[in-house]
Structures are given as structure tokens and as C-alpha cells.
């Protein structure tokens, strides 16, 4: 792990309305094979990706939210949610399908600064 780089995936889009959320998740799962230090950050509408209770039968689209629960098996355990974004959407930590660390926007900015590679979705 000594030559592991710090990768951050920045997720800012709601699921289903666009393909970004699903694309990000797929890249995350693929990247996991390379044993890097991976963080997932959820900002703005990206926090909606983690909302519990998604039921996609009515829109005939695959519900990919259960896959966030498999991230642990992929040794991806650093999930960060921006507090301001969560609050603005009337959500709380209990609304998420997986355990997350809630950070202020300022803390998120700092964490972003520390990364070697940032991938934006």
C-alpha cells in the first residue's frame, strides 16, 4: 500500500435523472481492483444517491442503490457526505443506505485538497 494514491470520487448528481451516478459507481467498483486509497464524496444533489428506499419499478430502471452496501466488501469504507447539501435537502444521516461520515463544506474542501487524483461525476 506504500505506493497507493489517494483517489476521490466526487458525486454531485442525483441518480436516474442522468447517468453520472451509475457511471461513477461502476468506475469505483473497477478501481477497487487496484488497491488504492479510495474516498467517495457526495456533494449537492449527489447526496440523493444514498437515499434509502429507492423503488424503481415504476420507471423501469435498475435500482443500483443496493450496490453501495457492497462497497464494504470492496474495501471502500470512506464515504463522505456534505452537511450543507444534506440539510438543504431535508435529509439526515438516518436516510442513507450505508453509514457515512458527514463533513462540513469547508472540511470537504480540505479533504479534496489532500487527494492525488480527483474524479468528477
Amino acid at each position: 500500500m506504500s505506493d497507493a494514491k489517494k483517489f476521490m470520487f466526487v458525486n454531485r448528481k442525483a441518480p436516474y435523472g442522468t447517468i453520472y451516478a451509475l457511471e461513477s459507481l461502476e468506475v469505483v467498483l473497477i478501481t477497487a481492483a487496484f488497491d488504492q486509497d479510495v474516498s467517495l464524496a457526495f456533494l449537492d444533489d449527489g447526496v440523493y444517491q444514498l437515499k434509502k428506499g429507492q423503488q424503481t419499478k415504476g420507471i423501469e430502471t435498475k435500482n443500483f442503490s443496493p450496490a453501495y452496501r457492497a462497497l464494504e466488501d470492496y474495501d471502500i469504507e470512506k464515504l463522505y457526505v456534505e452537511k450543507e447539501a444534506m440539510d438543504a435537502r431535508g435529509l439526515s444521516e438516518d436516510d442513507f443506505i450505508v453509514p457515512v461520515t458527514v463533513l462540513s463544506r469547508a472540511e470537504m474542501g480540505k479533504l479534496m485538497d489532500e487527494q492525488d487524483v480527483v474524479l468528477s461525476f
Binding site: 467498483l29 477497487a32 481492483a33 435498475k62 443500483f64 443496493p66 450496490a67 452496501r69 457492497a70 466488501d73
Partner: peptide, 15 residues
Amino acid sequence: EEYQIAPAVRVLTKA
């Protein structure tokens, strides 16, 4: 059924 993904080999082995 549980996670809606087919796990990577490494993950499958561990699980």
C-alpha cells in the same frame, strides 16, 4: 439479489 452486482473475483473469494 442482495446487492444488484456480480462481485469481482477478489470480493467473491472473501465473501
